[in-house]
């Protein structure tokens, strides 16, 4: 029953990423639920979104407090939010950063996966070099290291739901799945 929390900044596509994850699980014939943090979102402000995946119908309509994984679209959020909050022991953090997984100051006991999703997205012309749209790239890294959904399902979810620069998004997703680097802290 993976429960995933996504951290981003308004405009980076965290809410869409949580929906794409739900779509990927649905493509695999599973049940999924995706919701934003119901806040007063605005561009640049920290936002969170959630995805719940299970094999049986989802009855629970409460929020997620103890996720299995946190996906961080913007490393500057590490200064503003405790991205490890409530994570299950041995939980996974997937983060967009140009640093290595051990260089981020995250608490021990976590599995940390680092990927330079910003550089990958910018290379594909997604967003701008200063403000790349990293949601599809980081999902590739998440699929590769979490096993919660397959990379193929995420790519299919992108092809079905992302109308803008679809193949660039899919390519960024695949690239990040290869480049992601994991460490157990």
């Amino acid at each position: 029953m993976p429960e995933i929390r996504l951290h981003g900044r308004g405009g980076q596509g965290a809410a869409l990423a949580s929906r794409l994850l739900a779509e990927a699980a649905f493509i695999e014939g599973r049940h999924a639920q995706s919701f934003p943090a119901f806040g007063l979102e605005r561009r640049g402000a920290p936002v969170t979104a959630y995805t719940r995946i299970q094999d049986t119908p989802i009855l629970n309509h409460s929020k997620i407090y103890a996720p299995d994984a946190a996906v961080v679209l913007d490393a500057t959020l590490l200064k503003l939010a405790n991205v490890a909050e409530g994570l299950k022991p041995g939980g996974l953090v997937v983060i967009n950063t140009d640093k290595g997984p051990g260089e981020l100051g995250l608490p021990s006991g976590l599995r940390v996966a680092a990927v330079n999703a910003g550089a990958i997205a910018a290379e594909r012309g997604l967003g701008s070099r200063l403000a790349p749209i990293v949601n599809t790239a980081i999902l590739g890294a998440f699929a590769a290291v979490s096993g919660a959904v397959s990379l193929e399902s995420v790519l299919e979810a992108i092809r079905r739901n992302v109308a803008f620069r679809t193949e660039d998004n899919a390519a960024a997703c695949e690239r990040a799945a290869i480049e992601v680097e994991t460490a157990l802290l």
Binding site: R19, F26, A32, Q33, S34, F35, P36, I58, H61
Partner: peptide, 12 residues
């Protein structure tokens, strides 16, 4: 339907 809990939540 409940605000956000259903209105903005994606489900199958």
């Amino acid at each position: 339907l409940d605000a956000f809990i259903l209105s903005h939540t994606s489900e199958v």
